[in-house]
Design a protein around this nucleic acid. Structure first.
Lengths: 128, 128
DNA sequence: CATGGCATTTACGTAAAAGTCAATTAAGGT
DNA sequence: ACCTTAATTGACTTTTACGTAAATGCCATG
């Protein structure tokens, strides 16, 4: 496992701009350490970026992503906090399950759409 | 099946503002007919709104949603167009499959996070 | 030491997707 | 006819998530 990644390495890996990664730092989503002024991203930062990108693809806002990332961290020590966190995790999961239903429905409709197209091609006597 | 829906009925059903529905009309996503100045939404418009909301929850932009909606429409008559559409549909499906992978991974991590919390509670001797 | 090539900071810009507000207008009840 | 309520329009504003440009720093290499 590499110790550090440069900002440009990560921009290439995740296909984002340096501006974006600095923006995530401003937002407190990642905390690369500094050597002088240059940022050194650790594997943990890299993993966070991976999670951020996943969240983005799923249409979560930065704030939602921040919430989700909180959930991946060490569970809190206090009982009330723990119960609260479990509740929030359950909410997010419900959110994701809704997305999954949306996703399956959309996929199904696209399947149908494609079938119509293929049928149409057959009608037109195209050799598939 | 109802013939027409008023704008406010639909704002209630989908929990959006009138501004939003008018915005979608401006964007050409729905075309309610008019009686005088008031909009009458047909079941097809209602269905479109349902699809729009689904797309939004999945993080698609208005433009992407517009593209997807195009795909649900009648397939074009020309062979080249048909093949192009099939290609685009396949692309969107790949997009959705990626989202599905993201979703499953996120769900799995949340499962793990919750488990950690529950374990923690047990350690603290909380009667679950 | 000058050149090239990333990095950084600061500051301003912008597109998307609505929200908000004010001024009208139309429709329905009494 | 009048009043109220709901709907419309248009203009302006806001938020999010970065983009972009300018000025400058750091450092390796010829």
């Amino acid at each position: 496992m590499r110790e550090y990644y440069s900002i440009t390495e990560l921009t290439r890996e995740f296909d984002v701009s340096t501006r974006t990664l600095r923006f995530y730092e401003d937002e407190g989503l990642v905390q690369p350490i500094r050597r002088g002024r240059t940022r050194l991203f650790r594997p943990s930062d890299r993993h966070l970026i991976r999670q951020i990108m996943r969240g983005k693809r799923l249409g979560f806002s930065i704030n939602e992503i921040r919430e989700i990332i909180q959930m991946y961290k060490e569970p809190p020590g206090e009982v009330g906090q723990l119960k609260l966190m479990i509740k929030r995790i359950e909410e997010k999961r419900e959110d994701l399950r809704q997305k999954r239903r949306d996703l399956e429905e959309t996929l199904a409709e696209l399947d149908q759409a494609e079938e119509s197209c293929v049928e149409r091609l057959v009608e037109l006597g195209v050799n598939t």
